[in-house]
């Protein structure tokens, strides 16, 4: 505590709508809200508290893009350059049969990367 003149108020609410109006009212009077805890997501609370929108969608997109690039380079390099093989008389490299793996790796990296980012930025750890 830097100063003894600082005052802390703790409020407990048993209804999410009263909480939401309370938050709006208190912030309107210029009081800084330290934190709001709730047992379930309260819609509109993030706007009432003036939080900026999360940038997790950007993280999801970038991780997804990494997955796409990884899948494309992996398949082209392995079957096109490292060990070209004739399979069913087809080209060494062609895009259509590579699409399923490209799609799956995009989704996989996007999901895992975004969730890992979420756990890290929210400071969540198992122990």
């Amino acid at each position: 505590m830097s100063s003894t003149s600082e005052k802390f108020l703790v409020g407990i609410f048993d209804d999410e709508d009263i909480l939401l109006h309370g938050v709006e009212g208190v912030r309107g009077k210029g009081v800084k809200i330290h934190e709001v805890y709730s047992p379930f997501p309260v819609h509109g609370l993030d706007e009432a508290l003036g939080y900026k929108r999360t940038r997790l969608p950007i993280a999801a997109f970038l991780f997804g893009l990494t997955g796409t690039i990884l899948a494309v380079t992996m398949q082209f390099w392995m079957l096109g350059f490292d060990w070209p093989m004739i399979i069913g008389g087809k080209n060494f490299v062609s895009l259509p049969p590579f699409i399923p793996v490209i799609f799956e790796l995009t989704v996989l990296l996007s999901a895992l990367g975004m969730v890992a980012t979420f756990l890290i930025v929210s400071d969540m750890k198992a122990l």
Partner: peptide, 26 residues
């Protein structure tokens, strides 16, 4: 440990809902 020390703060819920929505989209 299983809950990763979840606290239910408003900002965590906001991110959590965003994660759930994007995971649904994926």
């Amino acid at each position: 440990a299983l809950s990763f020390g979840w606290d239910g703060a408003a900002k965590t819920w906001m991110r959590y809902e965003s994660v759930a929505l994007i995971l649904a989209g994926l």
